[in-house]
Design a protein around this nucleic acid. Structure first.
Lengths: 150, 150
DNA sequence: ATTCATTAATTAACATGTTAAACGATATGG
DNA sequence: CCATATCGTTTAACATGTTAATTAATGAAT
């Protein structure tokens, strides 16, 4: 219980604040996703595929903010369940090309409106303007932290 | 690759933005914590104990933003390694009282200055004012999302 | 073409996140 | 008191996060 000046209060630290906020937001989505049989991460993968179409694993991993190791496991499950299809890139045998199957697209069709509804409720509670502002701020901070060559 | 209006771009969603930002921040801390043999979550637990002194598990779990189930496992490890001590509350046999041992306090002494250094560098890159503003904004949003009775 | 370094993806091992259920201890109403 | 509900914590099972190492394919340089 030492009185320190070198460490900020735990509650007032960037990692904790971002974590708590994200957790409060995800609480709203997780039950709905669970009812559809997908996890938050699985839904991110499916959603990115829906947005971008066929994508190689590296791009997908960056797009869904997942480490490649996690994506490998997630894709194995989504493939077994028939939501995605995987083929090797003919021009580069190292790359996996991932695409959404019809079943995957159908899942998007089922989940998307519910997700949008929850997001709309969040906007009502928080304020759409406030959210947009926050997204801008976060983007700026990410840009400042990006491992640019310096 | 449907063009949808009902879902925001994945990149521009609250959960993803918060996740990406947090990840960029934690990248700076993780290697240092790893060098001291602790994970991010273990460090959070130790830090909260250092701030608050002896604390019951529920309070600790809330303070470190960990589910009680995760805390149970983490405390088992920290106890075995001698960083924390656990005793049952004499007034309520359900509660566990957790306290930091001397070894735990020594770890704080070792890690705290390095952590503060990394945080200072972050403030330099992002701007201390911008960080404070973000923390305020996040706090407001958390308040708006808190499961208050309504 | 052969060697060597690099890249994309995967596997392995351990820690944590998530949901559900179990457990003992405590409060509460009859 | 006693039965029951609730509470604080723990266990279990599965999914993901994290770091390190591996594998196969490609690229670069002889």
């Amino acid at each position: 219980m030492t009185e320190r000046k070198d460490l900020a209060e735990t509650r007032r630290s960037l990692p904790m604040s971002l974590l708590r906020t994200r957790e409060l937001v995800m609480e709203r989505f997780r039950p709905m996703l669970g009812a559809h049989g997908v996890t938050e991460q699985q839904w991110r993968v499916i959603r990115v595929l829906d947005e971008r179409g066929t994508t190689d694993a590296s791009t997908l991993s960056e797009g869904a903010a997942l480490l490649p190791q996690s994506l490998t496991r997630i894709l194995r499950g989504l493939d077994e369940r028939g939501f995605v299809a995987m083929t090797r890139d003919p021009n580069d045998g190292r790359r996996q090309q991932i695409s959404l199957t019809d079943a995957g697209a159908a899942l998007v069709t089922a989940v998307a409106p519910e997700s949008a509804g929850i997001y709309a409720r969040l906007e009502a509670e928080i304020g759409a303007r406030r959210i947009e502002k926050l997204l801008d701020d976060l983007e700026e901070i990410c840009a400042a932290l990006q491992p640019r060559a310096e």
